[in-house]
Computed example of a mutant assay.
Amino acid sequence: MGQFGVMIGQLVGFLIMLMVGYGCVRLRFYGKVALDGMCSLLLNVLIPVLVFSNAVDGTNRAQLFANRGVMLLTAIMYGLLILAFAIVARLLRLHGSRSHIFQASLIFGNAGFIGIPLVMALFAHEGAIYVALMSLVDQALLWTYGVWLCEPVSDHEHLAPHRTNPFASLRDDLLNLAKRFVNPAFIGVMIALALILLGIRVPELILKPLHTIGGMATPMSLIYLGGLFALTRWWGVLKRYELYVGLVTKMIAFPLGFYALLTALAAVCPWLPVTHDMILMMTVIAGLPTMTTIAMFTGRKNNMPDYAVGFVLVSTLFSLVSLTIVSAVVF
Score class of each variant (00 low, 15 high):
residue 86 A to V: 14
residue 75 A to R: 04
residue 88 V to K: 01
residue 92 L to N: 09
residue 80 L to T: 04
residue 71 M to W: 05
residue 70 V to S: 05
residue 81 L to C: 07
residue 67 N to L: 10
residue 84 A to T: 15
residue 80 L to E: 00
residue 62 A to E: 15
residue 91 L to E: 14
residue 63 Q to M: 15
residue 89 A to E: 01
residue 93 R to A: 11
residue 79 G to R: 01
residue 90 R to N: 12
residue 69 G to R: 03
residue 67 N to Q: 13
residue 63 Q to W: 13
residue 87 I to G: 11
residue 90 R to V: 01
residue 76 I to E: 01
residue 84 A to G: 04
residue 69 G to I: 08
residue 75 A to T: 14
residue 100 H to I: 07
residue 62 A to I: 13
residue 87 I to K: 11
residue 75 A to G: 07
residue 100 H to K: 14
residue 99 S to N: 07
residue 65 F to V: 15
residue 84 A to H: 01
residue 77 M to I: 09
residue 93 R to M: 08
residue 87 I to P: 10
residue 78 Y to E: 09
residue 92 L to I: 11
residue 72 L to Q: 08
residue 72 L to F: 14
residue 88 V to S: 06
residue 69 G to M: 06
residue 73 L to C: 12
residue 64 L to E: 06
residue 75 A to M: 13
residue 75 A to H: 10
residue 100 H to D: 13
residue 77 M to R: 08
residue 98 R to L: 07
residue 84 A to N: 01
residue 71 M to S: 12
residue 69 G to H: 09
residue 88 V to E: 00
residue 79 G to S: 03
residue 94 L to Y: 00
residue 88 V to F: 13
residue 64 L to K: 03
residue 87 I to Y: 00
residue 68 R to M: 12
residue 97 S to Y: 03
residue 98 R to D: 06
residue 99 S to C: 06
residue 64 L to H: 10
residue 87 I to R: 14
residue 65 F to E: 05
residue 94 L to S: 02
residue 72 L to K: 07
residue 71 M to I: 12
residue 98 R to A: 03
residue 64 L to P: 11
residue 92 L to V: 12
residue 83 L to W: 13
residue 99 S to G: 09
residue 93 R to D: 12
residue 75 A to E: 05
residue 95 H to W: 02
residue 79 G to K: 02
residue 78 Y to C: 07
residue 79 G to W: 07
residue 67 N to K: 11
residue 75 A to C: 12
residue 88 V to Y: 00
residue 73 L to S: 04
residue 98 R to G: 08
residue 77 M to G: 03
residue 68 R to G: 15
residue 73 L to V: 14
residue 68 R to N: 05
residue 64 L to I: 13
residue 88 V to W: 09
residue 99 S to V: 02
residue 63 Q to S: 15
residue 63 Q to A: 11
residue 85 F to V: 07
residue 89 A to R: 01
residue 86 A to K: 06
residue 86 A to I: 07
residue 80 L to C: 14
residue 92 L to H: 08
residue 93 R to C: 13
residue 94 L to I: 07
residue 96 G to K: 03
residue 75 A to P: 05
residue 96 G to M: 01
residue 90 R to T: 14
residue 100 H to Q: 11
residue 65 F to D: 05
residue 74 T to I: 00
residue 94 L to P: 00
residue 63 Q to D: 12
residue 86 A to R: 11
residue 79 G to V: 14
residue 89 A to C: 08
residue 85 F to I: 08
residue 91 L to Q: 11
residue 86 A to H: 12
residue 86 A to L: 07
residue 73 L to E: 01
residue 72 L to P: 13
residue 70 V to E: 02
residue 79 G to F: 11
residue 76 I to L: 07
residue 100 H to E: 12
residue 91 L to I: 05
residue 86 A to Y: 04
residue 70 V to H: 03
residue 98 R to E: 14
residue 90 R to P: 11
residue 86 A to M: 08
residue 81 L to I: 02
residue 69 G to S: 09
residue 81 L to H: 08
residue 90 R to H: 06
residue 68 R to K: 06
residue 76 I to K: 01
residue 62 A to H: 13
residue 72 L to I: 12
residue 91 L to W: 10
residue 69 G to V: 10
residue 72 L to W: 14
residue 91 L to R: 08
residue 88 V to L: 13
residue 83 L to R: 03
